[in-house]
């Protein structure tokens, strides 16, 4: 009985310590909002050492890496101005010769309907240069709401990631959105327009497209390799050169989405390749 009592006391003591510890331990507070202006933009580049919460005018003066465990939060109405690099750059830190945002951790671009987040080239960029775009490499989280991505080489490159996009416009980018590896894309609202190719899926991603418009791209609107799975509602693929390129079995699913493309549907080669 004494032993039991002793154990009970120990239990209560430990429980008390735990509760006190919980009460007294400092809560992890969100990072302080840093606001830039046109005259004094927030400058960011390099490896993100801590979580950041940014608003106003933000200038991306070089490659930015968001490592695993780090979070970049961008507030409604923010303008991210990317200083593009000239094409003599050989030593990119990450994936592209152009200025890039490489995400292995978490990114939240949280625009609002009347205050979208925009990403575009800074006026200091040499003529004819693009910026690379946002690259998700096994990213922990990528949530974009009311975002305009303008003039990138690849608006969003998703490698083994699962981005969630709502009302995102990807405009005038060579590739709009490119999916490789596995993962899931949830894309509701918005459009991919004015680039070479709209949305390309090369491996085994799942695409859940809702009310997305893929319009006015010079090459393919939508390219689906054999391993990609498409779920769609209200998808519109219009005025591209090739509306959709996919396996012949996808023709029926895609037919209602295709309108006024030079070629609405082109099946992928069926014969299989030679090894």
């Amino acid at each position: 009985m004494n032993l039991l009592l002793k154990h009970c006391r120990s239990f209560v003591f430990i429980l008390g310590l735990l509760l006190t510890g919980c009460a007294l331990s400092p809560t992890v507070s969100p990072p302080k909002l840093q606001n830039g202006t046109a005259q004094h933009p927030i400058e960011i580049s390099g490896v993100m050492q801590q979580d950041l919460r940014l608003g106003g005018v933000i200038r991306l003066s070089g490659d930015l890496l968001i490592p695993k465990g780090r979070n970049l939060q961008v507030e409604p109405g923010s303008r991210i101005l990317v200083v593009g690099t000239d094409s003599t750059k050989i030593d990119p830190e990450f994936l592209d010769k152009g200025t890039e945002i490489l995400v292995k951790g978490r990114i939240h671009l949280a625009g609002e309907k009347m205050a979208p987040v925009t990403l575009s080239l800074d006026e200091e960029t040499p003529a004819g240069e693009n910026w690379a775009g946002i690259e998700l490499v096994a990213a922990e989280e990528a949530v974009f709401r009311f975002v305009d991505i303008i003039g990138a080489e690849t608006g969003i490159l998703s490698l083994d990631s699962s981005p969630q996009l709502e009302e995102v416009n990807i405009l005038g980018s060579r590739y709009g959105l490119l999916l490789q590896g596995t993962g899931r894309l949830d894309y509701a609202g918005g459009r991919i327009s004015g680039g070479d190719a709209g949305l390309l899926c090369f491996d085994q991603s799942v695409l859940n497209l809702n009310q997305l418009q893929i319009i006015d791209n010079l090459e393919e609107g939508l390219y689906l390799a054999v391993g990609c799975t498409l779920q769609q509602q209200g998808l519109l693929i219009e005025r591209n050169d090739l509306g959709a390129v996919a396996s012949a079995e996808s023709r029926e699913l895609l037919a209602p989405t295709l309108r006024a493309n030079r070629v609405n549907f082109k099946p992928l080669a069926q014969e299989g390749s030679l090894q």
Binding site: L268, A269, E271, S273, L274
Partner: peptide, 28 residues
């Protein structure tokens, strides 16, 4: 040059000779 997803050979303001190749079963 075979079984490539979009094209076997894409050129943009380029030149050269392309001959005696086997170019088969490329996607588009």
């Amino acid at each position: 040059i075979s079984g490539n997803g979009r094209s076997g050979l894409k050129t943009h303001d380029s030149g050269g000779q392309v001959e005696n190749n086997r170019i088969e079963h490329n996607g588009e």
